[in-house]
Design a protein around this nucleic acid. Structure first.
Length: 509
RNA sequence: GCGCCUCUAGCUCAAUGGUAGAGCAGUGGACUUUUAAUCCAUUGGUUCUGGGUUCGAGCCCCAGGGGGCGCACCA
């Protein structure tokens, strides 16, 4: 990873005859001087492009081999390959839309310009004017009449065939990864399509997009350790948000009825193939709706995104084909645990009974855990890993759901769901707790846990209670881990493949 | 945080403890229809860092660093 000394500072003589990165850079830097001495600016300000390469192919892709059109185009892109053939040069030009061959004839461009083309390096950006043609073999090409260097690449590109494989380099130098790895470009295209699709679906249902603070006085809305920062002028501690929830529900109190936000949240926890310290959540809230409405919305959002982003609802998970268009299973957490261990569980059961059950299944209980928390741990230990097909796990215990409304038929459970696909949690939603008196009691329980040393617990958010006192209508809320949805749909196994610049330790230069 | 694996030329990869190699890129040459062009010639190394064992270390041992995977935490 370490670079050699900056070639521009070295005397040219030794380096120009050598090889290696420093020599390569020195040679290319020397070309800049030569170009400038000849009146050519290697970093011009702009280029007038008449067509993208995709447009050229769309318009002329079917012309007959060995023919020329009279279509004059100006195209631009990066030179990816170069094949010198005596007085002819073939080059592969790539822009955002496509790749097209350049056909450069010494007889057409003249000796000087031909020499400039021969001096181009792979990775250089060029702008070209010429005629659309097809070679004898039928390859759609632009027969170059004029070529301008648009930006000189000083550093050599990775292997033209194998690309970059070292994950460290790929993530640190995403620019190089994107240049040479088609799959990397594709994953981020899927990402764009999924997010655009979510927005369309939500707009279609009358939701409006909002932006709420990232700097929070109290990091609430989820159980997670926050990043802590400090505001100098106010001389106060602030936390980067761990969820969007509490601000968005304030907006429902304000009468906005349907709101959503797609934004980054930050959790000061481990990094893994499924976790990045900053990741993207979509949260939506809908007045007059409950958990069942949110379940329907979740399914619609993800199935629509699949169609929009990858053109199919069939995804492959660990070699298993899953059709997202099939109806998704719903099952209560307590029933899934019973299914897994053959014993019925319920938060109303005696604590000791659940503790020994947990111990039987390898779950070590912390002293402060109540029955609800133990059931959740039992679920994670025994049932969660089986949920490959899309499954809405419902009925989470009240104890682990401080912002969710109790089940209308079971005071120990909530009207809540978590969506699992491919053993990964993708979404979470519930009928929102809107009773300010009960919410205060729930917060106070959280405060006790926090005082007892639970650094993921939050305290009482007095302003949020005040908002509830103005009246939160019946509301259904949803949170979706966008990165994980994108992982599912793009078929990659690490969250780093769908985050352009994942969190890494700083590189040592 | 713990365990396992990994780090060799710009890139992709080789090298039973015995002189560090290949392909691509680069450089020089040939070539007016190539397609990862081809052919000939050729440059390029602090083998992640620091110790140690050994006659001799890319390889074995110890410590450190980066990364990957798993566990834990979590979404």
């Amino acid at each position: 990873m370490t670079d050699e000394p900056d070639a521009s500072l070295e005397p040219e003589s030794d380096l120009l005859s050598g090889s290696g990165l420093a020599a390569e850079k020195a040679k290319r830097l020397a070309k800049l001087d030569t170009l400038r001495a000849g009146g050519e600016e290697p970093y011009p300000y702009r280029f007038d492009r008449s067509h993208t390469l995709g447009e050229v192919r769309a318009a002329h892709g079917s012309i007959e081999a060995g023919t020329e059109t009279d279509a004059h185009v100006a195209v631009a892109g990066r030179m990816m390959l170069k094949r010198e053939q005596g007085k002819l040069i073939f080059a592969t030009l790539r822009d955002r839309t496509d790749e097209i061959q350049l056909f450069i004839s010494k007889a057409v461009v003249g000796d000087d310009a031909f020499g400039l083309v021969a001096d181009l390096d792979l990775g250089d950006w060029v702008g070209v004017e010429g005629i659309v043609m097809a070679t004898r073999k039928g390859e759609l090409s632009v027969k170059v009449q004029r070529l301008r260097l648009l930006s000189k690449a000083i550093r050599p590109m990775p292997d033209k065939w194998k690309g970059l494989t070292d994950t460290d380099t790929r993530y640190r130098q995403r620019y190089a990864d994107l240049i040479v790895n088609e799959e990397a470009r594709r994953a981020f295209q899927v990402r764009h399509e999924v997010i655009a699709s979510f927005r369309r679906t939500l707009h279609g249902h009358g939701y409006i997009e909002v932006e709420t603070p990232m700097l929070h006085v109290e990091a609430g809305g989820a159980h997670a350790r926050p990043f802590v920062t400090h505001h100098n002028t106010l001389d106060m501690t602030l936390y980067l948000r761990i969820a969007l929830e509490l601000h968005l529900k304030r907006l429902i109190v304000g009468g906005m009825e349907r709101v959503f936000e797609i934004g980054r949240v930050f959790r000061n926890e481990g990094i893994s193939t499924r976790h990045n310290p900053e990741f993207t959540m979509m949260e939506s809230y809908q007045a007059f709706a409950d958990c069942s409405d949110v379940i329907a919305l979740t399914e619609e959002l993800i199935v629509t995104a699949a169609r929009d982003a990858i053109g199919t609802t069939i995804v492959t998970i660990d070699g298993e084909e899953v059709d997202l268009a099939e109806p998704w299973r719903q099952a209560r957490m307590i029933d899934l645990v019973e299914e897994a261990i053959g014993v019925a569980v319920h938060p109303s059961q005696p604590l000791d009974q659940l503790r020994s059950l947990a111990a039987e299944h390898g779950v070590t209980c912390a002293p402060r855990w109540g029955t609800g928390k133990i059931i959740e741990e039992l679920f994670e230990a025994t049932a969660e890993h089986k949920l490959v097909q899309p499954t809405f796990v419902t009925g989470h215990p009240v104890e682990i759901s401080p912002l969710a409304r109790a089940d209308r038929n079971d005071a120990y459970l909530t009207e809540r769901f978590e969506l699992f696909v491919g053993r990964r949690e993708l979404a979470n939603g519930y009928s929102e707790l809107n009773d300010p008196v009960e919410q205060r009691l729930r917060f106070e329980d959280e405060q006790l846990a926090k005082d007892a040393g639970d650094d993921e617990a939050t305290g009482v958010d007095e302003d949020y209670i005040r908002a509830l006192e103005y009246g939160l209508p019946p509301t259904g809320g949803l949170g979706v881990g966008m990165d994980r949805v994108i992982m599912l749909l793009s078929g990659v196994h690490s969250i780093k493949e769908v985050i352009l610049f994942p969190t890494l330790r700083p590189e040592v230069f």
